[in-house]
Simulated assay, not measured.
Amino acid sequence: MPRRSGLIGALVALFVLLLGASANATAHTARSAAAADCRVLAPGASAAAESAVAAACEQVAAGVWYSWGGGHGPQPGASYGQVDPTDPASEHDPERRGFDCSGLVRYAYARAAGSDILNGPADTQYYTHRAAERLTAGQGLAPLLPGDLLAWGTSSHLHHIAIYLGAGKMVEAKQSGTKLMVSDVRLDGDYHGALRVNTGPVTGHVFQTWGTGVWTKAAPSVSAARVYAFPGPTTIRVACQKHAETVTSDGYTNDAWSYLPDYQAWMTNIYIKGAAWLEAVPTCTF
């Protein structure tokens, strides 16, 4: 009887060992498949954009977790997250070293540019003054290039951001309880649009806005169509300024408006930090 028990125990141990090996092999195969899918899938991107894709895909291949708040430490890179009070699935995020959506974008473009050019949440990244081009949701996939940033939400609150790979695919840190992944681009729902990042020198006159929910306009008038809303203080490029409709808001009155080329929109100078008439900025001729 002792011999039979010993044999059964050995068989059970062997079964557990084989089961563990099989599970590890399955996980390795899944990671390998994900890594193979995560790459530049279309031509036309800049070398920097391709480097950003490669940096994000390295993290996919490594099996890195989504972690709410992850990637927002003093330096770009994976970090332990925190519990999202609105998401029960995030209970283990403080134990998981990883990225949330904007943390992954920050890391990828820091690797590509050699400096921390996209530090902040999705809103801040989308409204960066480093926009080489902005693409609307209505334009769909056709104009997108690998490395473009895709955003979801509203103009005044963007809640998700991802990196386009090409061929209708993107790499993203999607949600708690999952690892970084390659997904089909979701053009339905609240897809807001895309951004092509300029990783080179920034030219023009750079200023900082203040206030929350400040709208830019299609013309220098409060009655003009709304274009974009800055959810909070935002770094902007100003091409020129002109005297137009007088605006009174938040205790200030000013008739100066600035043209923001990255948004093809106007903004009252009231919400741009600096003098009422911005120093060194030329007068618009249009």
Rank of each mutant, 00 (worst) to 15 (best):
G166T: 07
H28K: 13
L17V: 13
G81M: 00
D190F: 07
S155M: 08
G71Q: 03
S46G: 14
L145Q: 14
Y228P: 05
A110E: 04
Y271K: 03
H160D: 05
T29M: 09
S223W: 10
S67Y: 00
A151K: 04
C101L: 07
G120R: 00
W277R: 04
W257P: 01
P2K: 15
T234V: 01
I272N: 07
Q175W: 08
V227N: 10
V185W: 14
G193L: 11
A276P: 11
G168C: 10
H243Q: 12
Y263L: 15
G6I: 09
E50S: 15
W266P: 01
I236R: 06
G189Y: 01
H157I: 08
L144S: 06
A25I: 13
L158N: 02
G232C: 10
V83Q: 00
T178I: 10
A33F: 07
T199F: 05
S176D: 05
Q175V: 12
A137F: 14
G103Q: 04
G166H: 03
A61C: 12
I236Q: 01
Q208L: 07
L17E: 08
N198Y: 01
G114D: 00
A142G: 08
K174D: 13
S5H: 11
G77N: 00
G213I: 08
R4K: 15
D87I: 07
L165S: 06
A45C: 10
A10V: 11
V171T: 09
L150C: 10
T246M: 13
D250N: 09
A275F: 06
G73M: 11
K174C: 13
L11W: 14
R39Q: 11
A276G: 12
G232W: 07
V83S: 01
A78F: 00
I161S: 06
I272P: 05
Q59V: 07
A167M: 07
V60W: 02
A225P: 10
T246S: 10
A110I: 01
E133L: 15
Y271V: 10
R226S: 13
I163V: 13
A167H: 06
V238E: 00
G98S: 06
